[in-house]
């Protein structure tokens, strides 16, 4: 790591009369969840290293409203969404990258109807473009080299938005064997967190969804479960712990895996 590590805010950028190339949308998990914070750090380190001029909204960012809307609470959704759009439009934001596919989906697909039109990318797509443009240099030898990886499709990047190949091609840049789970891509099984399930107890049933999915991931014999979503990260990590495999199987976001190779 050579360059000075900075995470500027849009307010600071605006004060310096600068317009960043991209706004990094951190999201609630990326801001407050201790595990997901590490992904935010990893991603911003990559952005720094790649020389991307970016900024975050910092204290001016609010929840996109995704879980409220999917739970059925349109009022709460509209309140935060309209407020976010006010802020984004004030800063004349054009391009947004999000490390959370739920934020990505709402920003990209649902804010336009409310008056917020931006080019929105998921961080796996952004990483792919940085690699393609040669802005990310991957070194030989990395912390995760040689370990078998299985990739878990998040519902909101996968089925919700049809992005299946980009994260896989990002992973192809690593020196790892990529193995697929039984249910993959369009048939990928949910981790159990979406639709505001993250914020409530499970309905009565035989099994937790994350247990079902983790068992499937473990069956591949992979040592790393790669995810692209902070909620999948929590769910899969919990699943691995429940199976007492946390010593031998790690759950990482794609950004962390790329950073390990830089």
């Amino acid at each position: 790591m050579s360059k000075e590590y900075k995470i500027p805010t849009m307010a600071e950028m605006a004060a310096a009369e600068k317009t960043p190339e991209v706004l990094f949308w951190v999201g609630c998990a990326g801001s407050f969840d201790s595990r997901a914070q590490k992904v935010s750090v990893a991603f911003t380190k990559i952005l720094n290293e790649a020389g991307v001029e970016f900024a975050i909204l910092g204290k001016e960012e609010s929840c996109t409203g995704d879980p409220a809307r999917r739970a059925g609470n349109e009022f709460v959704f509209q309140m935060v969404a309209l407020q976010n759009i006010e802020t984004l439009n004030l800063y004349k934001v054009n391009k947004i990258v999000a490390t959370c596919p739920h934020c990505f989906n709402v920003l990209k697909n649902e804010y336009p109807a409310l008056g917020g039109n931006y080019e929105v990318m998921h961080h796996t797509q952004f990483l792919q473009s940085l690699i393609n443009e040669g802005r990310i240099k991957l070194k030989d030898g990395g912390a995760f080299d040689g370990k078998k990886i299985t990739y878990h499709d998040s519902c909101y990047l996968g089925r919700a938005n049809g992005v299946y190949e980009v994260p896989r091609s990002v992973l192809q840049n690593l020196d790892n064997e990529l193995v697929e789970m039984q249910r993959t891509k369009t048939n990928g099984l949910c981790c159990g967190a979406g639709g505001a399930q993250m914020f409530k107890e499970n309905e009565p049933g035989k099994k937790r969804i994350n247990t079902e999915r983790t068992e499937e991931a473990l069956e591949t014999g992979a040592e790393i479960i790669a995810v692209n979503c902070p909620f999948c990260l929590t769910m899969m990590s919990d699943g691995v712990k429940a199976k007492e495999k946390q010593e031998s199987v790690m759950v990482y976001d794609l950004a962390e895996l790329i950073l390990g190779k830089m």
């Binding site: 995470i7 951190v26 609630c28 990326g30 801001s31 914070q37 935010s40 910092g58 204290k59 609010s62």
Partner: peptide, 13 residues
């Protein structure tokens, strides 16, 4: 934020 927390949203940064 989805969680009621005392920390500022950019504390991590």
């Amino acid at each position: 934020s989805v969680w009621q927390l005392p920390d500022a949203r950019d504390k991590w940064a």
